[in-house]
């Protein structure tokens, strides 16, 4: 099992192959539907983003509230396809890795290939298991969105599988 530390270098990203099992440690940002729409609008209007987008690792999740003494509640991946429309501009702006669930569009696969990025799959439906891999949580932006806000997660040994690699190989299809 490959262990990688976030953020990932271009070399590390290019070495990954669809189907590889990886354990990720380091920092990532959460973002889903509402935030993706906001971020893509900011990029279009050349406004400043609330997170450092160059090299960013984005995890598509909306966690449950944390119990006392825990960093976070259940936080499994949400369906990535809903963010497809906004993904190519974020990749163009420097995002390098995404973690989610399910298939991506052809446009996203092409953009991942073009920008040398990677799409990881987190264990679908395993929100409790994944919460144990989050060591700290910091609310970073859009507090009013509640579970849809941007959080900075510190993760340790977060198990993922490469869904689409930098060569465009897609675990759910045979094409590149």
């Amino acid at each position: 099992m490959k262990k990688l530390h976030l953020p990932l270098t271009d070399k590390e990203i290019r070495r990954l192959k669809a189907g590889d099992s990886v354990l990720l440690s380091g920092a990532l940002y959460t973002a889903r539907d509402a935030v993706h729409k906001i971020l893509s609008g900011l990029i279009k209007n050349r406004k400043k983003l609330p997170i450092p987008i160059k090299g960013a690792v984005i995890y598509y999740t909306g966690p449950t509230p944390a119990r006392k003494g825990r960093a976070v509640g259940a936080c499994g991946p949400t369906t990535s396809a809903r963010m497809d429309e906004f993904t190519p501009p974020l990749l163009a702006a420097g995002m390098r890795a995404m973690i989610g669930k399910g298939r991506r569009s052809e446009a996203v696969r092409q953009a991942i290939k073009k920008y040398g990025a990677v799409y990881f799959l987190a264990p679908a439906g395993c929100g409790a298991l994944i919460s144990e891999k989050i060591t700290s949580v910091k609310l970073t932006a859009y507090r009013g969105l509640g579970p849809e806000a941007v959080y900075r997660f510190e993760v340790k040994d977060f198990p993922v599988v490469v869904g689409i690699d930098a060569n465009g190989r897609d675990i759910f299809k045979r094409r590149s």
Binding site: P63, R70, T78, G125, G127, A128
Partner: peptide
Amino acid sequence: EKIPICQDT
């Protein structure tokens, strides 16, 4: 741990 099975409750 009394946490939800899935975050989509």
